[in-house]
Design a protein around this nucleic acid. Structure first.
Lengths: 339, 339
DNA sequence: ATGAAAGCGCTAACAA
DNA sequence: TTGTTAGCGCTTTCAT
């Protein structure tokens, strides 16, 4: 099989000009259908595939979409496959999907500029803002998901975490709890700050007390949830809350693990609730009461929006640049009714 | 910021020719260091980034590595982030990493040909073979990991599952078990077949009986583990084995969940062991006794090998095309000693 | 150590 | 509906 089959050879064999072959590959150009079929048939025979470098040089298109996450590391839960499979579902066939961590970009010009037709930023941290504004400055079509960006020019899809937490706290109060603790997330993540504030607000509204000695900040990993829960369990029993609110499911599972090792039954001895509704929260023991975080849906909406931006289908019907999704309470087993 | 800064403008501003600017960006070309620095400085000022389409047209390089998985779907455990973070660790700065599922490729010529400098195939199924041979036919540098390929021309890294299983079975026997059951994986995956056979062999060696009524085949999802375990629990008690071997950790966790719902304690009432040693197997309750499947390590070895192939650093010291990794027994809590 | 010119494979006017 | 021609931005001879 030849390594360098060009448009020229196809043209010669088909008895047409290069332009005609080129047109055969462009869906919206005028060409007799029989000619197109003939060209495709020959192309297939000799193994011709358009050279995208040459095409890109002329059209300035790359047929590559970039997905940039704040960071790619092990221990990401099922996060990544959820995002990628949902993006692929909306990705046109001829596009490639490149995946990269923002924290690894050393040279924007080399790594990003001139390489993507569009970019989806899955952002968890304000540290990503520099990158996001570079995208904007370079006029690279972008959609930012997962956290709100305070800029009307940037298309943005995120979930209304506060409402979710507020509902969670209300549910806890309704189940007769009076005092709660919390295991929060990384302080550098916007979501952590907002979730913590929402917990405080929720406690105020529902006349719950948030035990200061049982407020811990983790790093979203199961291990940190476990370690921090150990600390909470060491509290004198009169200070120990009857329910611990965790900033994500991973830490909640770690917290359950800590209880298990200390022979403390969840939820009979203490209740634990999570956030995110990751896949395995429903098969953990006990199954987690949590709040959905529709990251798959956001990813799918993001790629659809991005493609429409790239194809310049500016929707004047729907000019809004931000979409806020509503979270949903998922009630399972880890919260006890102690009334 | 200008959208189309070319080599020409940099050349003009630096008072040199286009060729010299081009040389500045090629590490192994002869150029005075001061000129190079001057060019870089100007390039940075006016926001120049080489146009990779133009470069690729000449050099036939794409600066894109492709990662192809058998399939990308939700519920993949932490598999994907483990693979990607390890590949990124070995990826040169100027390369993009494209991620795709083999099961979504409709047109090899369009999606693959002429688009990658090299490809890593993370293969779980013989269904991928067509794709793998297309890579070979098109002379695209490739490394296949996760499952053995029976072809000496294809660079291949995988783990010796059988040995792992055999050790697992031996451990079960040493802990006093006499009869076991199994929850296997998808029959279309090579690994499933081999793991099942290894279980049978292990039973023969260690004088264990594999209860026919307690052999079930699942699809590697936690849900299938749960459903299948329910079936096993419905068996009359004299037929119910004292230990269930699961083909992966996800199904093992599902099986534990089934026990929990039926008030059966793991491992006191029944033992369950897994395979893969995924991240959360150590914080599940009980923590899983399992076998490591060094997929992160394989990914890292694969990218290093691939880059060396691309850079034509043919290592005559080490001409082997296959590497077999040894698995490790991870002993935790889910297997009881019933002696 | 640097420059001039040819050409990579393709698309986009313009012409027929 | 199809063909001719110019040129996209870069690297690579071959000079100097």
């Amino acid at each position: 099989m030849n390594l360098l089959v060009t448009i020229k050879e196809v043209a010669k064999l088909a008895g047409v000009s290069m332009t005609t072959v080129s047109r055969a590959y462009n869906p919206k150009s005028v060409i007799k259908e029989s000619t197109r079929q003939k060209i495709f048939s020959i192309a297939k025979d000799i193994g011709y595939a358009p050279n995208l470098s040459a095409r890109g040089l002329v059209t300035n298109k790359k047929f590559v979409i970039g997905v940039f996450l704040s960071s790619i590391h092990t221990n990401m839960s099922t996060f990544l496959s959820d995002i990628l499979s949902n993006i692929h579902d909306g990705l046109p066939d001829n596009y490639l999907l490149s995946v990269e961590g923002i924290d690894r970009i050393t040279d924007f010009n080399q790594k990003v500029k001139n390489r993507f037709d569009g970019v989806i930023v899955v952002s968890q941290s304000t540290a990503d803002d520099t990158f996001i504004y570079q995208l904007k400055d370079n006029h690279i079509p972008s959609v930012v998901i997962l956290r709100p960006i305070d800029n009307d020019d940037i298309y943005n899809i995120y979930s209304d975490d506060e409402t979710g937490i507020l509902e969670e706290i209300k549910l806890i109060a309704e189940n007769g709890h009076k005092s709660i603790g919390m295991i929060g997330g990384r302080p550098e993540f916007v979501a952590s700050i907002k979730r913590r504030r929402a917990v405080e607000t929720g406690c105020a509204i529902n006349a719950l007390s948030l035990e200061p000695a049982a407020i811990k900040m983790g790093d979203y990993s199961p291990e940190s949830g476990q370690v921090l829960m150990e600390e909470i369990l060491e509290l004198p029993t009169d200070q120990r809350p009857t329910c611990i609110v965790c900033a994500n499911d991973d830490m909640a599972v770690g917290a359950i693990r800590a209880c298990y090792e200390n022979n403390i039954n969840v939820p009979n001895d203490i209740s634990i609730i999570g956030f995110d509704n990751v896949d395995y929260s429903k098969i953990s023991t006990p199954a987690l009461t949590t709040v959905s975080n529709p990251i798959g849906l956001m990813s799918n909406m993001a790629i659809k929006k991005l493609i429409s931006i790239i194809n310049d289908e500016t929707d004047n019907d729907n000019p809004q640049t931000s979409v806020v999704l509503q979270p949903k309470l998922i009630i399972r087993e880890s919260l006890a009714n102690i009334k």
